[in-house]
Design a protein around this nucleic acid. Structure first.
Lengths: 337, 337
DNA sequence: AATATGAATGTAAGCGTTTACATTACATGA
DNA sequence: TCATGTAATGTAAACGCTTACATTCATATT
């Protein structure tokens, strides 16, 4: 069943059929109805490949992420997918599995499939090192199609970044904690990704403004599982590290902090305050439930798709869109403003 | 840059170039090397649309799920994607958002994109009701391309089901709990999906074999959030429902049970045993950590992809593949065999 | 030396669309 | 009635590949 069959049944040329399918050229109302009826009746769907060949687009967006089973990224993908589909775009998903080499490889693969744009979900796609050419693979892609980055920033033409104001939110919660009497806060971070770095900066800035010069020393960078990080805190404390507040770059780290507190016999939030990040489901699984920073992911994703649609429509849009976060106060801190 | 450019540079015909790209016909080693070198040098990639048109396949698998931000499905998708990509297949992702109408709509959409096969991730795609034609949308799809179902079973030609032995695993843990002295177990289930039903059956069977005829009455079906389910248990207990063990169809329900226990002042696992399902990250976030059933998702996904490759290679494979589960004993039950 | 054989390569016809350009049909005004 | 403009439709080329079939070429066989 192809466009010739339809045109024959309708007694018109294939061009006319194509025109009613694409709805971008004038066709008399009578023939349009007739063709539509036949399409409906036969259940004909245009061949996507041929369409792609002719139009050089398949209405498909590529999403690249490290690991779509990560709660945060999974959520982002869900929102992206639903939002994009409402605009009639498909989603090709690509997970790098945190393998460095896959970033460039899969980005190129997506390009070769002629996706109309690509979304890099997660700040790990940005190299924060000093090599000026480290993000060149992004630049190359952006030269051909729009590139959207979620929670990462790089200033390149054709790259549009949507990020939460991580630095500000960590700064602000740290400042509140200090104001409330905390004297030795700790910052737990998963990695030195772009957003991890921003959060760290916010933490250090808050400390500095409160006369604490040793900010850098109060930052613990650690990958590792919940269990490993619980161990790590126990060890650090045993080794003499003092802390009465832990601000984390992810909820999972905060869970580890909470487990540490249980095992060390410290009372939360009386002796120790804990703040997570992302307002994930995990933050509701523990006792007490986590105070956490909600970076309004679904709003960020919707904004990103909005922005993308504008870019593809040829509109002029800024290369950076900042989304403000909300602090969700629960049981691992005293009341916070 | 197209195949003509390459053929020209190499001084051969486009057929020869095509042959070395596809590697399925004889080309002299000398010309092959020459062409390969030119392809490498120019960075040429064949146009995927034209390729699709010619071959009528795009090496793409569609994955349909209700909600890719659900921890379990997210994990499944991750494993599927990586496994499929290692076989050089792309993944188009489609989330129905639990909307009934989207199941058929998106399945058809995937078909119209000429995916080579489709994976239905999650048992919610199977209608367990009595309408004999309720799964006809699956049959229609399976008439054209292979359909893989994860954790659901329906006996139709062209449909291949990979499922964990949910009934057996719930039966077995329930039996162990009873043997250990539990007298009034409860089963918490999210929904009457195919796999939910199997789990329920296992629970009821274990009860019956231990002389308890009121199995059905000891099953609580509940959607709802952690908070709502905590409330539900508090209310039921207040209304006189007695239970000393809770077996859940998902870890999240077990978290609710744990929260109920905390609020009701019941000791876990001394007064109350709790068993979750899926061995998700959530099961590690609480105190004590959850005893849970690990249905070996990554193995199931790998097996499913294996099976799919065989189907597409024309091999004869069974329509049902059962994956055995493992019980992971942690802190919410006493030692279990 | 003539011929058969088979490997390597080329030719050209699809695959199913879109769309620029050509054509037709029809209404309008002179 | 005829030229003119416009709306509706048709024709055919293009998109970039795959592949059946045709051709060439080198080698082996007689």
């Amino acid at each position: 069943m192809n466009i010739y069959d339809i045109s024959e049944k309708a007694g018109v040329s294939i061009a006319t059929v194509s025109r009613v399918i694409n709805g971008n050229a004038k066709v008399s109302e009578k023939t349009r109805q007739k063709i539509l009826a036949i399409i409906e009746e036969t259940g004909y769907t245009p061949n996507a490949f041929a369409r792609g060949l002719g139009l050089n687009t398949m209405k498909t967006i590529g999403i690249l992420c490290a690991d779509c089973s990560d709660a945060y990224l999974a959520s982002a993908i869900y929102h992206f997918e639903r939002e994009l589909r409402s605009h009639d775009y498909d989603v090709i998903l690509c997970c790098t599995g945190y393998e460095q080499a896959n970033k460039e490889k899969y980005l190129n693969l997506l390009m070769s499939k002629h996706v109309d744009a690509v979304i890099l979900a997660g700040s790990n796609f940005i190299d924060t090192g000093s090599d000026p050419d480290s993000n060149s693979y992004i630049r190359d892609a952006a030269g051909e199609i729009p590139v959207i980055i979620l929670n990462g920033f790089v200033d390149l033409p054709g790259v549009y970044c949507v990020l939460s104001d991580d630095q500000e939110s960590v700064y602000s919660v740290t400042a509140s904690l200090l104001e409330q009497g905390a004297t030795s806060p700790l910052f737990l971070s998963r990695s030195d990704s772009y957003s991890g770095l921003q959060k760290k900066k916010g933490f250090i800035r808050a400390l500095k403004e409160n006369g604490m010069k040793d900010g850098e020393k109060r930052v613990l960078s650690t990958p590792g599982t919940i269990e490993e990080n619980t161990e790590l805190l126990l060890k650090k404390a045993a080794a003499g590290l003092v802390f009465d507040a832990v601000i984390c770059s992810e909820d999972e780290l905060a869970i580890a902090a909470l487990k540490y507190a249980k095992q060390a016999g410290r009372l939360v939030p009386k002796d120790l305050s804990i703040v997570g990040f992302n307002n994930s489901k995990m933050s509701l699984c523990c006792e007490p439930e986590l105070t956490t920073i909600d970076n309004r992911l679904s709003y960020a994703c919707a904004s990103a798709v909005d922005l993308l649609m504008k870019v593809m429509a040829g509109e002029d849009v800024p290369g950076k869109l900042l989304i403000s976060s909300n602090l969700v106060v629960r049981g691992t801190t005293k009341a916070l403003k």
